[in-house]
C-alpha cells in the first residue's frame, strides 16, 4: 500500500483548471520529484493535498486513511509536514523559537497553559537537533527575519523535519538561492535523506537538483500528469522533452 495516494485530484480557479485529474502513488521511503513549468499546478497540488485549499474533486488517501476535506492542521497532525514556495516563518522570533514551535506541534501536551515544562524541554531538544541538521546552530538566537534568504529556506525545512513527519513535502526549496547556496542546500538535503527513512515529495525547477535527489519523477503540465517514472525514463520521454526539459537544457 502506498503511503500517499492521490485519486483524480482536481482543483479549478474559476475557469482555470490548475490541477486536472492527478493520480499519483508515493511509496514509503520514496523520494519523489514533481516537476513542470511555471504555472503547471505544482504548488496548487501541494495545497490541496495538505488541505490549505479545498479540492474541487478527487480524493487523497494517506496511510490508508482518507484525508480529503480535512483542515490543514488535522492533515498535518496525521504526519505530513510541508514548506511553502514563498518562505513562511515567524520573522520576529529567533531561529530556535521558530523550530521549537514546529517541534512542539507533535507533542501530545502541546496545548498546555500550565505545567508544560516537559513539553518545552522536549521541543527545545528536537529544535536543537533540527537546527544542527540544517547546520544553522550558530544562528539559533538570531531573528529568523535577519537570516539570509538561503538560511531562511533551510530554517523552514528545519521546522518541517522538527515535526517528525512521515511525509515531507518541499515546495521549491532552492528557489532564489545562489549557486553556492543551492549546492550547500542540496548537500544538506542529501545528508538528511541518507540518514532517515523519510518519504519526500519535492517540487523543484532545478533539474540538476532533481536528478541528484529523486528516486522517481512526476511531470505536470497544465495541471495534468504527462509523465511518471524513473529519472532516466522521464528524461527520455518525448512529450516531456518538448513540454519542459527541451526548453531548459
Amino acid at each position: 500500500m502506498p503511503l500517499l495516494e492521490c485519486r483524480g485530484l482536481t482543483r479549478s480557479f474559476g475557469g482555470l483548471v490548475a490541477v486536472d485529474n492527478v493520480n499519483m502513488a508515493i511509496e514509503a521511503g520514496e523520494i519523489r520529484a514533481v516537476i513542470g513549468p511555471n504555472g503547471a499546478g505544482k504548488s496548487t497540488l501541494f495545497n490541496i493535498i495538505t488541505g490549505v485549499l479545498p479540492v474541487s474533486d478527487g480524493q487523497t488517501v494517506f496511510a490508508g486513511e482518507m484525508i480529503t476535506g480535512l483542515p490543514v492542521y488535522r492533515v498535518v497532525q496525521k504526519g505530513i509536514a510541508r514548506t511553502f514556495q514563498l518562505t513562511h516563518l515567524f520573522p520576529d522570533l529567533t531561529a530556535h523559537e521558530n523550530v521549537r514551535i514546529a517541534a512542539q506541534a507533535q507533542h501530545a501536551d502541546r496545548w498546555r497553559p500550565l505545567a508544560g515544562g516537559h513539553v518545552l524541554a522536549a521541543s527545545r531538544k528536537v529544535a536543537d537537533e533540527a537546527l544542527e541538521q540544517m547546520r544553522l546552530s550558530r544562528f539559533s538566537g538570531v531573528k529568523a527575519g535577519m537570516l539570509s534568504h538561503g538560511d531562511q529556506r533551510l530554517l523552514e525545512i528545519g521546522m518541517a523535519i522538527a515535526q517528525k513527519p512521515r511525509l515531507l513535502m518541499l515546495d521549491e526549496p532552492t528557489q532564489g538561492l545562489s549557486i553556492e547556496e543551492t549546492d550547500r542546500a542540496v548537500q544538506i538535503l542529501r545528508d538528511m535523506l541518507a540518514k532517515g527513512d523519510l518519504t519526500v515529495i519535492l517540487v523543484e525547477h532545478d533539474m540538476e537538483v532533481v536528478f541528484k535527489l529523486a528516486d522517481k519523477i512526476t511531470v505536470l503540465h497544465r495541471g495534468r500528469v504527462i509523465a511518471d517514472g524513473l529519472p532516466d525514463e522521464v528524461k527520455a520521454n518525448d512529450e516531456v522533452q518538448s513540454a519542459y526539459l527541451g526548453g531548459l537544457e
Binding site: 490543514v72 509536514a81 515567524f90 522570533l93 523559537e97 514551535i101 512542539q104 496545548w111
Partner: peptide, 23 residues
C-alpha cells in the same frame, strides 16, 4: 507555557501556525 508559544505563533504568522498542525 507551550500554550503561550502557540499564541506567539498566531501573533507572528497565523497561517504558518495552522500549517504546523495547530488548531
Amino acid at each position: 507555557s507551550p500554550f503561550g508559544a502557540v499564541l506567539t505563533g498566531i501573533r507572528e504568522n497565523e497561517a504558518k501556525t495552522r500549517a504546523l498542525g495547530y488548531n
